[in-house]
Nucleic acid binder design. Structure first.
Lengths: 194, 194
DNA sequence: ATGCTATCTTTCCGATGTCAAGATTGAAGA
DNA sequence: TCTTCAATCTTGACATCGGAAAGATAGCAT
C-alpha cells in the first residue's frame, strides 16, 4: 500500500460513481468515497476543493456519456429526420432509466456548479445536438411555422418531464404501472405527428 | 415562555416552510427548524418521527396549495376546455416559480415518502384534476383518436419538464434567457393546437 | 545527494440526525 | 383537593459529516 496512490483523482471519480449508482446521490459522502478508494478522508481535498467540485467533475463525464448515448440512439435509427428525433427521445429516456443517479446529477443544480467551464461546455454540446435534430426535423416538414426555439423547448421539456416524473415515481402513482419505453415511444410519436 | 409550546406541530411545519423558502430544501436542518420555533433540538421528535416525516407532512400541505393554485388558474380562464387546460399548464409553471422549494418537495422522492397515505391522497386529487381536464379537452375535439393516457402523460410531462428545466437553470444555459411565462403559454398553445 | 513540491495522513472543529434518560406540565380520576 | 399518569419538552450523548490545519512522506528536478 504505497503512500502515493498514483491516480487518486481518477479513482475517486470512479468510486464516487459506484457509490452513487448503488445508494443514490443523497447518500453520498466524501468520506465514504475516500474509504472506497482506500485512502484517508482528507485525501480528496487535494484533488477536489469541495464535494460540489467532485460532483461537478463527475457530472461532466456523465454528460459526455449521456451525449454519446443520444448520438448512438440517433445513429441506429436512421430513416427520416423526424424518426431520428424520436430515437433521440427514446435514448434520453433509456439512459435515464439505466443510470438514474447520473441522470439526476447532470440535470440538477443542487449538487453541481452548472457554470463550471468544463461542465458548461459539455452541456452546450449536448444541447446543440438537440437543437440541430429539431431544426432538421422541422426543415423536413415537422411543425411548419412554429417558432424553432419553442419547438426545442417543447421537445426537451417533454422528454425531460416524462423521465423525471418516472424516476420520482410520480407517474406510476397517478396513472398506474406501465412500460416506460413503450409509452415514451408513443408520446414522442404524438408529439412529432403534426 | 411556557414549557409546553401549545401547538408545536403546526409551528414546526410553518417554520420549516419559511426556512425552505429562504435557503432551499438542501440546506434545511431539523435543529434549525427547532431553533426557529424557539424550542430544543429534541422537541420535534415528539411530533415527527423523522426528518422525512416532517417533510412529508409539509409536502402534503404544499400539494394542497398546489392543487388550489391549479384550480384557481382554471377557474379564471373560462372559455373552451382546451383553454382551461392551457390555463392549468400556466398555473403549474407559475406556482413553481413562485414557490420553487415547495414545488421541489412535492415532486421529489428524495425528501418525502410518496406512499404516505395523506400525501398519496392529496397527490391523487391533483392528478385527477389533470386527468379530467385532459379528458374534457379531448371530448371537445382535441387530439381525436389519441390514447387518453398518453395525452395525460404528454401534458403533465411537458409542463413538468419545462418547469424543472427552468428551475435548474438548464434551459437558460442552452437557449439563452427568456420570459418563462410567455414561452410556457406559447408551448402549451403548440401542444393543444392539434 | 539534496532540496522542493505535490500528495497523503492525522487531528481538530462545528454541525447534523437520532436516541435515551430525565424534567415538567396539564388533565383525568380518586 | 390530591394523586397519578401520559404527553410534552429538555438535556446529554453518539456516530457521522464537510472542511481546515498541521505534519509526514514520496518522488522529481537540480
Amino acid at each position: 500500500m504505497p503512500y502515493h496512490h498514483g491516480n487518486l483523482r481518477e479513482a475517486l471519480l470512479e468510486k464516487a460513481t459506484e457509490a452513487i449508482e448503488e445508494d443514490g446521490i443523497g447518500a453520498l459522502s466524501l468520506r465514504a468515497v475516500a474509504r472506497r478508494a482506500g485512502v484517508s478522508h482528507g485525501a480528496p481535498a487535494h484533488h477536489f476543493s469541495d464535494k460540489t467540485d467532485l460532483l461537478t467533475a463527475l457530472a461532466t463525464r456523465a454528460m459526455d456519456r449521456f451525449r454519446a448515448a443520444l448520438a448512438t440512439g440517433v445513429r441506429e435509427a436512421g430513416g427520416s429526420e423526424r424518426e431520428k428525433l424520436r430515437a433521440m427521445g427514446r435514448a434520453y429516456v433509456r439512459f435515464a432509466t439505466e443510470h438514474p443517479a447520473l441522470f439526476r446529477i447532470i440535470t440538477s443544480s443542487e449538487f453541481i456548479r452548472r457554470d463550471d467551464p468544463e461542465f458548461a461546455a459539455s452541456y452546450q454540446s449536448t444541447f446543440d445536438m438537440l437543437k440541430q435534430a429539431v431544426s432538421e426535423a422541422q426543415r423536413e416538414g415537422w411543425a411548419q411555422g412554429v417558432d424553432a426555439m419553442a419547438l426545442v423547448i417543447l421537445s426537451w421539456s417533454t422528454a425531460h418531464g416524462l423521465t423525471t416524473l418516472w424516476l420520482d415515481g410520480a407517474l406510476a402513482d397517478g396513472v398506474g404501472p406501465f412500460d416506460l419505453e413503450a409509452v415514451a415511444a408513443h408520446v414522442f410519436e404524438v408529439l412529432t405527428a403534426v
